[in-house]
Every structure is written in C-alpha cells, then in structure tokens.
Design a protein around this nucleic acid. Structure first.
Length: 571
DNA sequence: GCCGTTTTCGGCCCGACTGTTTTCAGTCG
C-alpha cells in the first residue's frame, strides 16, 4: 500500500496545480492536469517502479502524460517535490483544494476572496461569512453568503460522501414513491448510485413526466427534505435529513435514453463516448445523439450506443478503464449477476454471540432461494465475539448434521456447510488446531488484530495463513473500513501470487463499510487467475441483503461468473 | 499541457442553474 502512496501524492499535487491554474484563468492546462491526476490514480503500477524500469519514456506511455508532466513526475521522484507547484502555491498561498470543496465555491471565487478579504482557509472563510463580509463584496449578496455557510456546515458534517449501503433503503423508498405518481412516466436513479460506487456524493434521479411542476412540488416537499438548494423548471436539488443531497431532473421522453446515458457517467466514460460520437460526425448531449440538427437516437441508452457501433456497457464498469474499446469490438465480458449466487459462506450464528440460531439463518437462506448456507462463526482468539473453541466446534457440527438430515428427509435441495472464521494471529498462525479445522467443510481465516504491522510483516503474516492447507478463504483481505480505516500495509501483488499458487480464495466482503476487496484488486485478481467468492459476513438476518452490494462490487471489478468467481452449487 | 485515420498546430464535452444582474460569469455535473 505504501507503494501506491507516491501515485496518490503526485495526483494530489497535479490536482492542486490544476486548481491554481484555474484561479489564474489559464486556459486548458487545468484540464490537462486533472486528466493526468486521474490517470495516475487509477494506475495499477507504482510510478517509481515504472520510472525505474523504463524512465521518462515509460511515464509518457500513460495517457495524459506528455514530455512536460513526465519531467515533473521525475522531479518529484528524485527530489520529493515539484518546483513549479511550490512557486504556484507561493504566488497564491490559499487552500484552494479545501475551499473548492464547498458547494458553489470554485477557483475564481477563491481568488477574489483571497485578493479582497485575504481568505486562505476554510476557517477564514467561515469567520468572514459570519461577520457578513462576503455579502459586501461586489457581485455577492446575502444569499451567496448564507449558502457558503451552509456548505461549510455540510462539509463538516458529512465529509462529502456517504456509504452506498447506508443510503440504499432511503433512495429506493423515494424512488418508489415518485414511481407511483401518475405524473411520472419513467424513472431511474442515475449517477454514481447507478454505477454502484461504494460511496456516493449525491444522488441523481431522472424522470420523464407529463407534469414536471407537480413532480418538482412533490420532490421538494417530501418528508425528509431539510433544505431546498435550488429549483428550476427541469432540475431541483435538495438536502435530506439522512445527510446527503438529492437532485431530480425532468427530461422529455425522446431524450430519456440520452439523459440516462449522460447522467449515469462516469464523467470519464462520457467524455470518451462523446469523442467517439464526434469522430463519427455526431454530437452527443443529454438530449440525444444528433447529426446536424436531426436527432438520430435518444429514446433509450441501447439506441445511442448502438448508433455509435457499441455494446451497452453495464453501468458498474463505465469508468473509461477499457470498457469503451471492448464495447466497440463487441466483446464486453458477461459480468456476474445476483441471480448467479447460490449461497453464502460467511455467516455468523448465535453460537458466537450473533443474533440468530443456525436454523433461523438456514430458513432465511432457503427463502432467498439459496442451495447452501455456510456457518462461519469466530474462533477462540476473539473472546469479545465469544469465539468457539475446538470442543464447541464439534458440538456445533452435531447440530448442523441434525439440521441437514431434516432437510434431506424433506427432500430439500439445501444444505448447511460447516465452517469457521478463524483468526490470523500476529505471527500468521491461526488460533485453532489443525485437527479441528480439518474436520470442517471449509475454513475462512481473517485478520482481526494487530492491524498496524509493517507492510512486510502484514504481507508475510497473511501469506503464512494462505499456505496453511486447511485455510480455504481469506476474509476481507485488505481490512479497509470505508471512511474510517485505511487498508493494512500490504504488498497486494505478492498476496495475489501466493493466492494463485496455493489456490486460496479471496473474499469479496459485501458489508457496506468494507466492500473489500476494492474494485481494482478484483480486476487484478481476475487477470492473475485468482479465485474469489462473494460473502455477506451476516450477523443479522437483514445483512443477507448485502449480497446485492457485494455483487455490484464484483461487477465493478469486472468479475465474471465463469473464470473468476467461486460459485459452489449442488453439494 | 496533451494529442493526431482531417492536424506537429490548433483544437480541447456541453448545457442548466444561481445570484446577481438586466446580459452574464461562475459553478456544477
């Protein structure tokens, strides 16, 4: 992980340079810097490695990096800084990245605030706004000042993004309410929500309506709306009590597909698609695909991509990370779907202090149409979770046997598998005897302690666990907790190589706070032929529904049912 | 600053909304 940090640092600097250049009203360069920052962030390889291997020439192979930026990267790798960046910062010593996080504040505004009021930081701005200094500036007014204050509050409270899993129920609820209005002919949630990113900035809803005004009224007055940011004839924007923003857009029927395509994004995907449109003599916007003034597609997404000679990429992979080229060739992968899932192997019962009996969990699994359920309670090291020892595992095994006999006598095509989630101790040993593990149907092992080891220690620790012949699956492999904890320091490529060689399966943990593996690691694992499995880590019955998030996560990592994922069935 | 089956120069995605104006710049997605 430490390795990738260099890439993030350089990306951050490029982004800041872009912002400062925007403040200076330099044309086009900012976009070039932003594009380079994005490319560097999504790079699989460490820039230092790349440069060591191939020098500036290799750096220039990265799309968006030319002579000039390659030199700047080289300068950073050699000296730890970029001179031009420091000069720019000196000329405008302002926290432009922080300030522009506020809704409605961009680089131009930051520049004026600095020149006229000496504002450099978020704190400066908050104080100035509270003293009503902002509204006295020419071209500003009380509303702008109020919006800035509210924007700062929101920023403090939410840190910008919310977890997909946390807002999912609210969004689905609002969607179904809107759907029921007779004025609504079509509706879809778009943006990063439709692409199923693990965190979402704000939620965009798209609607076709016979009476936009009525729908806007309903939307802006829904219970749960605490602030209306703005409302026009085709767009309204509100802040919800759950702590995130929601935008509603109304479009004409004949533009619905174009709007779907446009507002689903990502921005990078759209830019690439629009360039294809231009190269074929079309113009693409949110209203349709046009040849001159004639609209030749727009009713459906399918129609638009088809007119461009492309397959429709699933929303989850619209990131301009290779899907464009494959869609043009007609060879997009067939991604895993929720219907492919036959069971769940990471589920905790009341044996380790969870909420539900094995029988209750089995019933729920059958209701979901699963063919199997794996019980994987914690083992003894995790005393706080009432981890099971060898003796308790044997007793649990008896109970599971009884239940399975019952299912068999009823001719059910369903079976409980007996596993556990053992702890990988600091040394890499697991906390329960090999004899006990060998008796189980399968074994998950995971790190639940000593998370701050060095990269080498942590990598060696997990590798040792993977080499244990009883260990089948590694749970939540990077250990990240979204918005709370960074991944462990890990040499992940090394982990992947050992996983491939030992046949160890890596878990895609569906828990909303984890979604671990991250998408780019899923893609990497797929490329290396490492097996993965999607589990929910269920502790309560409703957690089973997290499978939807796990599948979405897998799809964003391009996982296919065949080749990449382990989907056991018919035991 | 990048990039090239129109180009090594001259383009670079494009439209809506807000706040303040009274025709528009800035911001956003």
């Amino acid at each position: 992980m430490a390795k990738v940090m260099v890439n993030q640092e350089i990306a951050k600097i490029f982004r800041e340079i872009g912002k400062i250049l925007e403040m200076k009203e330099v044309a086009f360069k900012p976009q070039a810097y932003y594009r380079a920052a994005l490319a560097i962030e999504s790079l699989q390889e460490d820039l230092l490695d790349l440069w060591t291997r191939g020098g500036k020439k290799a750096l220039k192979e990265i799309p968006g990096i030319g002579q000039n930026l390659a030199e700047k990267i080289e300068e950073f790798l050699l000296t730890g800084k970029i001179k031009e960046h420091q000069l720019l910062k000196k000329s405008l010593p302002v926290d432009v990245v922080g300030l522009t996080q506020i809704e409605g504040v961009g680089p131009k505004l930051v520049k004026r605030l600095y020149k006229e009021l000496g504002i450099r930081t978020l704190q400066d701005l908050e104080q100035a706004a509270k003293k009503h200094l902002i509204q006295k500036l020419e071209g500003f007014g009380p509303k702008k000042e109020q919006n800035i204050l509210e924007g700062i509050e929101f920023l403090k409270k939410s840190k910008g993004r919310v977890l997909l899993g946390e807002i999912l129920p609210t969004v689905q609820n609002i969607k179904s309410k809107l759907e029921k209005l007779k004025e609504v002919q079509a509706i879809e949630v778009v943006g990063s929500f439709r692409r199923k990113k693990e965190t979402v900035g704000d939620v965009d809803i798209l609607v076709v309506s016979s009476n936009p005004d009525k729908v806007m009224d309903f939307f802006c007055n829904m219970p749960g709306v605490v602030k209306v940011w703005g409302r026009g004839p085709t767009k309204a924007s509100v802040h919800l009590k759950e702590g995130f923003d929601m935008d509603l857009r109304v479009v004409e029927r004949e533009s619905y597909g174009a709007a779907l395509q446009y507002f689903t994004g990502s921005k990078e995907h759209n830019i690439a698609v629009r360039k294809i449109a231009i190269s074929k003599g079309f113009k693409l916007n949110e209203y349709g695909l046009f040849k001159g003034k004639e609209r030749i597609a727009g009713l459906t997404e399918q129609e638009i991509y088809q007119a461009l000679g492309m397959q429709v990429p699933p929303p989850e992979i619209r990131e301009d990370q290779g899907e464009i080229e494959l869609a043009l060739k007609g060879s997009l992968p067939k991604l895993i779907e929720i219907g492919d899932i036959k069971g769940d192997l990471h589920v905790h019962s009341n044996w380790d202090g969870g909420e539900h009996s094995i029988e209750e969990l089995a019933q729920k699994a059958q209701d979901l149409g699963y063919e199997y359920l794996g019980i994987s309670d914690h083992t003894k090291f995790l005393k706080i979770e009432k981890g099971l020892d060898e003796k308790q595992l044997t007793a649990q095994s008896e109970e599971i046997k009884k239940l399975n006999l019952k299912f068999k006598s009823r001719n059910l095509k369903f079976r409980i598998l007996h596993g556990c989630e053992a702890n990988i101790l600091k040394t890499g040993a697991v906390d329960i005897s090999d004899e006990a593990l060998a008796k189980l149907d399968y074994v998950i092992a995971g790190v639940h302690s000593h998370m701050n080891l060095t990269e080498k220690e942590m990598t060696d620790r997990i590798i040792r666990a993977m080499k244990n012949p009883n260990v089948d699956i590694i749970s939540h492999p990077t250990g990240r907790l979204l918005q709370r904890r960074d991944p462990y320091q890990l040499d992940f490529e090394k982990i992947l190589k050992v996983a491939r060689d030992t046949g160890t399966i890596l878990e895609i943990n569906s828990s909303p706070q984890r979604l671990d593996l991250p998408d780019r690691f899923i893609k990497l694992a797929k490329a290396m032929g490492v097996k993965m499995i999607i589990n929910t880590d269920t502790h309560q019955l409703h957690h089973f529904s997290y499978m939807e998030l796990g599948v979405a996560q897998a799809r964003r990592g391009w996982a296919e049912k065949k080749k990449t994922l382990l989907i056991p069935s018919h035991f």
